[in-house]
Amino acid sequence: MTKRTKKQLLIYLGFVGPGLLVYLFIVAYPVFYSLWLSFTDYNPNKGGAWNFVGLLQYKTMLTDPYFYHSLKNNIIVVLVSVFGQIPIGFILAYILYRKLVKAERFFQSMVFLPQFLSTIVIGILWKRLFSADGPVSRIIQLVSHDPSAQFTMMLSPKTIMYPIGFALIWMYTGFYMIIFLANLQKMNTNMIEAAKIDGASETQIFVKVILPLLSGAIAVSTILAIAGSLRGFDLIFAMTTQGLQRNNAMVLPIFMYQTAFQNYSNSMRFAYGSAISNAIDVISVALISLSNLIGKKLNAGEEF
């Protein structure tokens, strides 16, 4: 190794080393630890003894009805994010970019506003809106002329994901709108002008010019939406009260939390909780790979 390459290597390590160490200790170590934990019966509160239990935690998980209930709710959250937040964010960004409304700065700020608020604050806000005799119930009472009418969607596992989906769209659409707006603003406007000269309509410009050019941003947004949806905990936790509502709206991270942190009657709860969090990782990787594949098939033109 020459003196020059040695120097280069030292510089390279100087730059990469600290980040790599942080990654190994903060990200990689917990992932591998969790993987090991899920194959044992280890409970750190019960001393250092542990046994290898094979796939026991995963078998328990796959026979637990709460796992499937949580998975179903998580898939709903993913669908709301991918087919709700992203298209709406895209449309809003397009409207603002093409100046189809007046006072676009005002609308841009309004849609992005939830991003400035704490998720817990937003959760409590929506919880209040949907509570007994809360604003939503008052509107229902006004419309139905029934003073006892209440907004009861939060009480049923069949309906609870509607109000939660609505809140999720309200909260995160602004984030995707900003991503699309930034991409639209860096786009070469000559292409749009050329399309206009060729007599293309607004719809044709949107479908044939803008949409293909933004396919990369759409794919990135999809990955962000899937990853965010699967680890989503805070908003749903804050929006629901302990008991029936939280059970109805249970997603995998809440299921994992309740199992590992609250179920004292299960002495293997930390190991079981790790199995659930590993399942979240596996599902995330599978869904992100799928979206990547679809992105490539649609000629996204970018590697992610």
Partner: peptide
């Protein structure tokens, strides 16, 4: 009240 399940 029936609505009590919505009262925190």
């Amino acid at each position: 009240s029936k609505k009590s399940v919505l009262v925190d």
